[in-house]
Nucleic acid binder design. Structure first.
Lengths: 349, 349
DNA sequence: TTGAAAGCGCTAACAT
DNA sequence: ATGTTAGCGCTTTCAA
C-alpha cells in the first residue's frame, strides 16, 4: 500500500478523544455522549477508517466467518487433483446446492458473517478443515455431505468444534443437524399416485447408500403396500438427469405398463419424463411422474413437474442459525430440526 | 471453550526454547538446528498447537483469503431479500459457475488460501464488499459479473484494491481480467456449419447486453457473411435452457428450413435441440446444432453436443494466479490474459 | 461518561 | 543458530 490504512489511533487523534472512546462508538456501545459520538463519526469519515479485522479477532476470538464444507465420501485412493476439481463442479451441478448457499447467505449476511467455501473429499482435505477451524480462521462449520459415510461430522464432534450438518449424520454422531421428514415425502408421492388412480406404480430411487434415499423409498413403499401394492418395481439412480433416464429405461423393461413413477429428485424425474416421451408415453396421461425437491428445474421444465417440495433455503438458513447459536453460546447440546415436505401439484401428476 | 488453545508460548515452554524458535519451525524458516526442530515438532504435537490466524494476520497483514464475488447489475430498486436469494440460486444454476469455483479452488487450495463467497447485487452490497476488503478480511477480490454494466470493477480499481475480473469489464476500467477470444469461438462455429454444408444457418444469441454474447455473434456472422450468408436469422436468449427453447421456436417461425444453429451456450443449445425434436426435426440430420462452453451438459445430453469449448477452469485458475501475484507484489499493472476457444465435435454437428 | 493501560498471539528486527 | 523484544490494532478492565 502506498498509504498506511488509518487506525483507531488516527481517528482518536483527529477527534481529540481516546482510542477507547472511538472503539465504543465504532462498536455501538452506549454510554457515549451524543456530541462526542458525532465528533468521532465525523473523524471516521474524514480519515476513511475501517476497523482492522485481524486485530479485532485477536481479542474477540471471533472470525465472523463460517466454513461451508462440501464433504464427500473420501476414498483415499481417489485423491488426485482431477477428481478434486470434478468434485467441486459436480457439487455445483445440482441445483440443490445453489439453494443451500442461498439460504445460508440469507442468514449470515445481515449479521455480517461470511461463508468460506471448502471441499473435503480426501482424508487430508478433512484434516485441513479441522486445522483451519482450530486456527480460528472460521468460527464453525456448515457441513453438506454428499455421501452417507462421510467421517467429517464425527471428527468435528470429537474435536468439539461448532458445526451443523445438513441431514442426519449416518453414524450416531453428537452433532446438530437439520433434516427433512423424507418418509413423509415418500408417502405424499404415493398418495398422489393412488389418488390419480395409478395401478402400476414404480420408483426411481436415489443412491441407496444415502439415508434420505432410503427413507423416501420406505415412505413410498409402505404407503403403497398398505394400499394393495405389496411389490413396487424400483431402479436406483444417482440424482442426475442421466441416471434418471437410465433408471426409467430399466423400469420400463421390467414393466412396460407402468402408469406412475416417483423419482427421488427432480433431476431424475426430468430424465424419466424425457425417456417416457421418447418411448411414446404421454406424461401425465399415460404415465404420471412425481419428483422431489421442487428445485428450479421442476418449475421450468415442460411439462412442469409435480413434486415433493423440500424447503431447502429455510433448512439451510436454520442450519446457519443453529451454528450461530452454538458459536455464541459457546457450547450447546446437539440439536436437530426437522422440516415437513409438501406436495406441489403441477402438470406431471 | 473449556480449555484455552495452546499458544506459541506453551509450545516454547514445552520444548524448552524461545517463542521465536518455535515460530521459525512453524513457518519453515531455515537456520534452525535439525535437532531442535525435531524437539519443537514433538512439542507441537504434544500440545496440539495450531497457530492463531488473527495474531499472524495482524502482523503479516495478510488474511490468506480472497473474496469470490458474484456481482449483478445493481438496480437499486430490486434490493429486496427475495431477489437476493434468487440471485445466489440463479448464479449457481449455470454449470459455468461450478467450473469457475473449481478452477479457483484448484489454485488457491495448495497455497492454503480460501475463497469467501459474496453476492453483490445492490449498491449497498457492493459497498459492503469494499468495506470488507478494506477491513483486511480478504486480501483481494475475484469478480464474476453477471451483467455488462456492473459498477463493481470500477469501484475496486478506484479503491486500488487487488482484484481480477472474469471477462473484460464493460467500461474502460484499469483492472486485470481473463477472457476468451469469443469472436474466434463464433468463427469456429460458423466454419463447422459451413463445412457440413449448411445452407440456412441461424443463431441463438446470449443477452446482447453482455459483451461476450455480442462478440460470439459477431464472429459467427462475419464468417458467414464472408461466405455468402449476408443475412443470418437470430433470436436473443438468456443463457438458460428455457430461453433456448423459446428462441429456437422463433427461429423456426422465421425460417422453417433452418439446417444449422449456433447457440451462444450449451444450455440454450440443449433447449434448441429439445424443441427441434419436438417439431419433428432430427438433430443433426435435419438441423445441426452447435453450443458454446463445453459445460458438463454438453457431454451428458443426448445427442451429445458439438460445442465451442471455453477452458473455464483454466481461466479461473489464471484469475486466481493473477490476483495472488497482485497481492504479493503489492501493486502490479492491470494485466489481461486471453484464452483461445476450441471446437469440440460430438454428435449434434 | 471518558481515559489509561494491559494484553490478545504472533512475527521480525536486532542482539547475542 | 537462538533468544530478546518491540510492536501489529484492537477491546476491555479499571480508575478517574
Amino acid at each position: 500500500m502506498s498509504k498506511q490504512a488509518p487506525t483507531l489511533e488516527d481517528v482518536a487523534r483527529e477527534a481529540g478523544v481516546s482510542r477507547a472512546t472511538v472503539s465504543r462508538v465504532v462498536n455501538g456501545v452506549r454510554n457515549v455522549d451524543p456530541a462526542i459520538q458525532k465528533l468521532v463519526n465525523r473523524a471516521i469519515e474524514r480519515t476513511g477508517y475501517a476497523p482492522n479485522r485481524a486485530a479485532r479477532s485477536l481479542v474477540t476470538r471471533r472470525a465472523e466467518t463460517v466454513a461451508l464444507v462440501v464433504s464427500g465420501a473420501g476414498d483415499p485412493s481417489q485423491d488426485t487433483r482431477d477428481t478434486q476439481d470434478a468434485f467441486a463442479a459436480r457439487a455445483f451441478a445440482d441445483p440443490f446446492f445453489g439453494r443451500v448457499v442461498s439460504g445460508i447467505v440469507g442468514y449470515l449476511r445481515p449479521r455480517s458473517m461470511h461463508p468460506v467455501l471448502m471441499f473435503a473429499e480426501s482424508p487430508q482435505d478433512r484434516q485441513e478443515v479441522l486445522t483451519y477451524l482450530r486456527q480460528g480462521r472460521s468460527d464453525g462449520a456448515l457441513v453438506v455431505s454428499t455421501h452417507a459415510d462421510d467421517p467429517l461430522p464425527a471428527s468435528l464432534a470429537e474435536a468439539k468444534l461448532p458445526a451443523v450438518s445438513f441431514a442426519r449424520p449416518a453414524r450416531e454422531v453428537p452433532l446438530s443437524y437439520v433434516d427433512l421428514e423424507h418418509r413423509h415425502g415418500g408417502r405424499l408421492a404415493a398418495e398422489r399416485l393412488l389418488a390419480r388412480g395409478c395401478r402400476r406404480p414404480a420408483t426411481v430411487t436415489g443412491p441407496l447408500a444415502v439415508p434420505a434415499s432410503r427413507e423416501r423409498l420406505a415412505g413410498f413403499r409402505d404407503t403403497l403396500a398398505r394400499n394393495g401394492h405389496p411389490h413396487v418395481p424400483m431402479a436406483e439412480g444417482g440424482f442426475t438427469t442421466d441416471s434418471g433416464i437410465a433408471a426409467m429405461e430399466r423400469l420400463l423393461a421390467e414393466d412396460p405398463e407402468v402408469d406412475g413413477v416417483f423419482a427421488a429428485n427432480d433431476l431424475m424425474a426430468q430424465g424419466a419424463c424425457q425417456l417416457l416421451r421418447e418411448r411414446g408415453r404421454r406424461v401425465p396421461d399415460d404415465v404420471a411422474v412425481i419428483g422431489f425437491d421442487d428445485s428450479v428445474v421442476a418449475r421450468s421444465c415442460t411439462p412442469a413437474l409435480t413434486t415433493v417440495r423440500q424447503p431447502v433455503e429455510q433448512m439451510a438458513a436454520e442450519m446457519a442459525r443453529l451454528l450461530d447459536e452454538h458459536i455464541r453460546l459457546d457450547r450447546t447440546d446437539p440439536t436437530c430440526v426437522l422440516f415437513e415436505p409438501e406436495l406441489i401439484v403441477r402438470e406431471t401428476a
